[in-house]
């Protein structure tokens, strides 16, 4: 519980964040790469070429749902609240274009780049946080 924010889950958030940080650390120290999901997904699907073996890219991508399954098995079912499919389709398209142009997403820039104090990643992270906040504010104002 966090005073003033009854719906917040700070401890679960922190635990999840530590796992994500460990994942990124395993990737960096184990195989010398950035754990950037959009880039690795692009590599796995063949959209992007990189020095990462495709087998390794697919192993990482498939690991993501496996990890979620593990949490559901140990921690009980998750209750996600998704929007309707048309919104999701538009958002997916924009995310796909944006992450290729911007060379990364919340993982590559937000976690790996920010923790490295990379100027590019700091700029990218501040930018996508700002437009994300503006988008939610605009939708809330209009609906």
């Amino acid at each position: 519980m966090l005073p003033g924010f009854p719906h917040a889950e700070p401890l679960a958030g922190l635990a999840g964040g530590i796992l994500i940080g460990l994942a990124a650390a395993v990737m960096l120290l184990g195989s010398g790469r950035i754990a950037g999901v959009s880039g690795i997904f692009a590599r796995a699907t063949g959209v992007a070429s990189s020095s990462m073996p495709r087998l390794a890219a697919w192993a990482f991508v498939l690991g993501l749902p496996l990890g979620a399954l593990l949490v559901m098995a140990l921690n009980g079912p998750l209750e996600p609240r998704f929007l309707s499919l048309p919104w999701i389709a538009v958002a997916g398209l924009v995310v796909g274009v944006g992450t290729r142009l911007g060379s990364g997403c919340t993982s590559g820039h937000g976690v790996c780049g920010v923790s490295r104090l990379s100027p590019r990643s700091l700029v990218a992270t501040l930018t996508f946080m700002a437009t994300g906040i503006a988008t939610v504010a605009a939708i809330n104002a209009l609906t």
């Binding site: 994942a23 990124a24 990482f60 991508v61 993501l64 990890g67 949490v71 559901m72």
Partner: peptide
């Protein structure tokens, strides 16, 4: 790394 990452996201 992927499994740890996915678990962290879900948790």
């Amino acid at each position: 790394a992927g499994v740890l990452f996915g678990a962290g996201l879900a948790l």
